[in-house]
Amino acid sequence: MKELQSLNDTNLVLAFQNGNLKALDVLIERYKDKLYSSIYFLVKDEWIADDIYQDTFIRIIDTLRFHRYNEQGKFLPWAARIAHNLCIDFFRKQKRKPPIVTSDQGEVRDIFDAIDSQVDNAEQKMMQQQSFGLMYQMLDLLPNDQREVIVLRHFADLSFKEIAVMTNCSINTALGRMRYGLINLRKIMTENSVVL
Rank of each mutant, 00 (worst) to 15 (best):
M127V: 09
F57W: 15
L182R: 11
N121P: 05
Y136N: 12
L142N: 01
L12G: 01
Q146G: 01
A79F: 04
D33T: 15
Y136M: 13
T10H: 03
I58W: 06
E148W: 06
F41S: 01
D45N: 15
I60A: 09
M189V: 04
R153S: 12
V108Y: 07
H67D: 09
V149P: 00
L158F: 04
I100F: 05
Y136I: 15
V26R: 00
D25R: 09
P77T: 09
I88Y: 05
S103C: 12
S6T: 14
K125L: 14
N70Y: 10
K187E: 13
R59I: 03
R147W: 07
V43G: 04
I188L: 15
A49L: 07
Q124R: 11
M178G: 10
Q129L: 12
N85K: 08
D45K: 13
A122E: 14
N192Q: 14
I82M: 06
G106N: 12
E162A: 15
L152S: 08
W47E: 14
W47R: 13
T173M: 12
G181Q: 08
A122P: 02
K97V: 11
P77E: 07
R177F: 12
K93F: 06
S6L: 14
L182E: 15
L196S: 06
R81A: 12
A15M: 09
I60Y: 02
C87T: 08
M1L: 09
L139T: 03
V149H: 03
F112Y: 10
V195S: 12
T173L: 08
F112Q: 05
N168Y: 08
H154L: 00
A15T: 04
Q54W: 03
I111F: 08
I39W: 00
M138V: 09
M189Q: 10
M135L: 14
T63A: 10
C169R: 13
Y40F: 15
Y40I: 08
Q137T: 08
D145W: 03
L142W: 04
R30V: 06
M135D: 02
A79K: 01
L86C: 03
L76F: 08
W78H: 06
R153L: 05
Q94P: 00
Y53C: 03
V108F: 04
R153K: 15
I48A: 09
N70G: 11
V195L: 09
L175P: 00
F132L: 12
F155C: 01
D157L: 03
K22M: 11
Y69N: 02
D157Y: 00
E3T: 14
